[in-house]
Write a protein that binds this DNA or RNA. Sequence first.
RNA 1: GCCCUGGUGGUGGAAUUGGUAGACACGCAGGACUUAAAAUCCUGUGAUCAGCAAUGGUCGUGCGGGUUCAAGUCCCGCCCGGGGCACCA
Length: 921
Amino acid sequence: MDYNFRNIEQKWQQHWAKTDAYKVSNDRTKPKYYVLDMFPYPSGAGLHVGHPLGYIASDIFARYKRLKGYNVLHPMGYDAFGLPAEQYAIEHGIHPADSTRQNIATFEKQLNNIGFCFDWSRRVNTSEPGYYKWTQWIFLQLFGSFYDRSQQKARSIDALQAIFEKEGNQVHPCPGDAALVFSAKDWQSYDHKRRQEILMNYRLAYCGYGEVNWCEALGTVLANDEVVNGVSERGGHPVEKKTLRQWYLRITEYADRLLEGLETVEFSEAMKEMQTNWIGKSTGAEITFKIDSEQGTVPAFTAYTTRPDTIMGVDFCVLAPELSWVLDISSTEQRPEVEKYIAYVKSRSERERMAEKRITGCFTGAYAINPFDENKKIPIYLSEYVLAGYGTGAIMAVPSGDERDYKFAKYFEIPITNILGDLFDGENANPTKDAILVNSGMLDGLPMREAMEVVIDKLQAKGIGKRKTNYRMRDAAFSRQRYWGEPFPITWQDSVAVPLDEKELPLLLPKVDKYGPGPGGAGPLAAIDSWTDRHLETNTMPGYAGSSWYFLRYMDPHNTEAFCDPAASTYWNQVDLYIGGTEHAVGHLLYSRLWTKILFDLGFINFQEPFKKLLNQGMIQGSSRFVYRRHGTHEFISHGLIMGQQVDKIHVDVNIVDGVELDTAAFKQWKNGEFKDASFILEDGKYICGVEVEKMSKSKFNTVNPDVLVEKFGADTFRMYEMFLGPVEQSKPWDTKGIEGVHRFLKKLWRLFFEDEKGAIWTDEVPTKAELKVLHKTIQKVQTDTERYSFNTVVSAFMVCVNELTDLKCHKKQILMPVLIMLTPYAPHIAAELWQVLGGEGEILDAAFPEFNPQLIQESSKNYPVSINGKMRTSMEFPLDADKDSIQAAVLENEVVKKWVDNNPIKKFIFVPNKMINVVI
RNA sequence: GCCCUGGUGGUGGAAUUGGUAGACACGCAGGACUUAAAAUCCUGUGAUCAGCAAUGGUCGUGCGGGUUCAAGUCCCGCCCGGGGCACCA
């Protein structure tokens, strides 16, 4: 009887579906365990082999916890709003809801092939009205709240109005406009519109203005990764900055709590570091510099610095070129150059500006005055490395202490003041905080760390500066000029944003005929009369809206009265194990942490960190293929012929490339004929593509479909192979070769139960000591390694176990049954089949994980490695309880040891019990 | 550019706290079974040198230094790959 995985897997998948084996109840008598995967965006490309890596790991862990007696919540759903479906709609005229539904059907079929234990009755889909009703509802809570800094929590905006009525905003400074100060009397005198304007500056979800990548030719806003070398990836059209009205989430108010919360969760140190860096908390000072310009119309500006102690080393200042008053200080002579430079910067994306190695900049012709030395005139420059969005958009540059400032000074031949004494060598900036200051006037002789406080005190005393904590993090842009996202439950009345009543939710996305952009950069909804007639907000929410709270919805997915019943969220509580990629390190994870904290503050849930333990699955990388378009043409140059020509590098679908050779006919038809006009410059009659290993993703056209592998080898083999590939946290390029080894293992396991001629060969015999040792060694390894998420070594432990049982010719039920239980999380179908064959009672899914007995693997002696001077030369067997002296005597008598020691005196004899022996001569 | 992460045989990887580098697989080579193939099984397999062989020597965890009786593991400096950098999700 052969291992017929197709029949077996079909049989058990049907059985488990029929018996609702994966249905989870909110049964509060059992201890709970919540295992969650980052849910996928259901792309048209379907599932690729990278997706299931994390899902298999979480499935194994969920099943393992079930064997250990927990009530395990392990749901799956879809992050179903997003750009690709909309782009597809624009290109093919198919409604995103329809294509999304189809894509989900494909995903689900593929997921079910792999045999996951998801409770599908809890499936969520962020694009369904029943779900996004609650996304909108939570948005209304954010809109209706502000952050009370004195209480360090979100509170209702109504409470704030009551406070304003009584005491103005003395106690609650305005986060959106620090200069705004008013009394109760002022407030009472303001009209409705003015009051709403002020409240907008406090709301956690608020409306403001922000810059976007605007492409006139496409009439739309582009994502950063849709812009390549300043032109659109699609079509190569110019892209420039445009300011649009946008919604934001006031995440900056939560910066400190987001930092503190990191100490309470089990994320990797790297992950915590990334989030900490993203938040970018720094302390320093804001310093006001007087401006000496031709016009004299702008009297001063404020710079933010983390190093106020270096104030006397400031040799120039740099402004972000997009500051509105830059031209007002430019001298007549410099003005043309300034205008040219501003135009240049306008064409550059923020990414490009920060990544630029070349030094660019321009002198304004104006000077700043050092606040502690009226005679020191400091030239004011513009440069793209200063961003308007960080700090005040102006910096004081200290070339002796900052590398970038140093290079800038050298490039523009600005004389450098050395305030570091011997610690500055004139060749490199030295960012030390431990120098004794020189050339610093009143600060001379002070250690830098002390000078910081002195300078801040003096600034505050003179009223020209203050201590300031700054965050690199900015408020999160929360609107998109798109169709396929949650509509905002907001109407505009006389320029005031008015929330819809809860009863009007969900505000349904209207049906449209075309999905193109609306007028003037607005989203498609702006082109729909029935929508604009009601003065509804025409932006939609971004992709991360629905994913910021979905883990709560799984707990109570069908509730029509609330986003989640508090009883359910109290029971299921935090996600115990959350698995997903590091690419979400700062986006999704920060946003969901923010939403959780706000919902906690407002009393809707009783925990403030969503994810207790985070496991980052590595990326399964794809092997991408590229074609090279000569810049500004439709001419494609084969990889070997580029020779430094200026080309646009474009991903091409790996499925129309054979090895590295492009199928040029298929390429012309690809992407709905986008490249139909392509011409090719070939080498040896072939178009050779470039190759790179990178993230496997639909947008890089390098995906591999798991269905093919499941069909050929079965789900159990596929699951185990994905785990066997390496540590789940580690990234690796996909490679199918090697899957046969895992398949052979399952066949070898099968042969412990069945033989070709004899058929069934298992027995009821009593196991030997050696067999029990194999079993318990395996129990120990499988348990400890599963618990430390080292699934790849568990797979090899199973292989070792089966190899050894085969060598021992062991076919005994008492050994095989516990092995099957352990194998269940990894290869559930074959385990269930063999369990039934052996006459196991009940469902193997609910069997008890075997108990490890350390006595059965106890050894009485150890084969010690014996080293001479740290180099292993031989090995010797000693009883575990042997003492050092007797071991030393025996070792020194050993022939190999004698040969190496060669009568030299023994300097040291190192014996580490149960580890090793080292003789030092 | 900045932040994070990784680099071990031909390949994926193992080595859990500094203690026998290369477990387990893939591939490859040779063999058994077969008319043949597939499947299966067995043996070998880091490099290099000496030897008919058993065996033994040397080198070896990206590169260069260091700490230690002992370094893949710890420290310093570099090189290369991957992820993120705020509108891909």
